[in-house]
Simulated assay, not measured.
Amino acid sequence: MFIDLSGKTALVTGSTGGIGLAAAKGLAGAGARVVVNGRDTERVETAIRAVLDAVPGSDVSGVAIDLGNAGGCDSLIGAVPETDILLNNLGIFGPKPFFEIDDATWETFFQVNVMSGVRLSRAYLPRMMEKGWGRVVFISSESALNIPADMIHYGFTKTALLSLSRGLAKLAAGTGVTVNSVLPGPTMSEGVKEMLKEMAADEGVSIEEAGESFVKSQRPSSVLGRPATVEEVANMIVYACSKQASATSGGALRVDGGVVDSIVP
């Protein structure tokens, strides 16, 4: 399958590393004009260089804005008033015992993981519908379906994204705009590697081996038996953003390595 997104603009939130950066590279490789985003100017500039290194000659720019509040989202919308593809990738995670999660933490997770996508979709989706083409993708997680006992606040936000994307897909029905969620499983992003460092040191193994051990012990239903790479997840994202995915909308597209033990998507 040859995916050609020439002439399309793709805005990828939280794309200075991990899945977001891999998706930005994949979209640029398909010919899209890509806008990367992060909170830190230096990291945004580094991400731009990484996309250009991966796809020489690509059209890539960046905006350094914190989207964890309404003001930041408004600033981004002002800087990038229109886009054809909106990839709501921004998200934070981290294990914490439920009884130690205070209201402020709940609010932070909700604002960053959910409301950033709500605000940006509210701004960009109407114009996509007017033009008769657009793609909105939310990065959810297998944790939306398998709520982790040690990350209930995170799982809650990822479940919310499934409801949001399904509802928006219905709202955009018949307009040529599709809205989907992508559900990665354990993925070797920078954040996960950092989380595995201590485990790897304790066991005297590499981070990759620690990743396999983690999947087998904490996600034993995994068919893959290892964490996915960010590129493997990005492949699904790029497809969901493609013209070829015109009949895929309202979906929860799993790229979880089979962690969710169900034959129904």
Rank of each mutant, 00 (worst) to 15 (best):
Y124D: 00
G31P: 14
S189F: 08
G62Y: 03
A123W: 02
A252Q: 15
P227W: 04
G31K: 12
L90K: 08
D4A: 04
G225V: 12
K131N: 15
I3D: 00
T83N: 05
I19A: 11
L171W: 12
S141I: 08
D256N: 14
M1H: 14
L52P: 02
T108V: 03
T178Y: 00
S217I: 01
G185C: 11
G211M: 10
W106A: 04
I139T: 15
S140L: 09
P81M: 13
R43C: 00
L161S: 03
M129P: 02
M115Q: 15
S222I: 06
G68C: 05
V215I: 13
A144E: 08
E107I: 13
W106F: 13
K243G: 14
D74S: 11
A200S: 09
E190R: 12
W106G: 06
I3G: 01
S143V: 03
Y239S: 01
T9V: 01
D202G: 09
E232F: 08
G250K: 09
D59L: 01
T178I: 02
A228W: 05
P148R: 02
G62R: 02
E212K: 15
S189C: 02
T83Y: 06
G225I: 14
S221C: 00
T108P: 01
E130Y: 08
A210D: 13
E232A: 11
S246G: 00
R119W: 06
R122D: 04
L87E: 02
F93Y: 13
M151A: 14
I92Q: 11
V223T: 07
T16F: 03
F214L: 10
I263T: 10
L11A: 06
M129S: 09
G134K: 05
L67T: 01
A234P: 10
A123N: 07
Q244A: 15
S242V: 08
D74N: 07
A50W: 11
N37I: 04
K8R: 15
E209S: 09
K96A: 14
D261Q: 11
A28W: 07
T83G: 07
L90G: 04
R219L: 14
T175E: 05
G72F: 01
S75H: 06
S143R: 03
A210Q: 10
Y154G: 06
D40C: 04
T16K: 07
V259T: 12
E198M: 11
G251W: 09
G250I: 04
N235W: 06
L168E: 05
K158C: 05
A173V: 02
T41D: 12
A149V: 08
G251A: 15
S221M: 10
V136H: 02
A247H: 11
S246I: 00
M129W: 04
F138D: 04
D40Q: 14
V223H: 01
G20V: 07
G72M: 04
G204P: 10
E231K: 13
G211L: 01
F110S: 01
N89Q: 11
L67K: 07
A28Q: 03
R39H: 00
V36L: 15
G251K: 13
D59S: 10
R122Y: 08
V233K: 05
A24M: 08
G176F: 08
A149Q: 09
A23D: 03
S206N: 04
P184Q: 03
A201W: 06
V233R: 03
V12S: 12
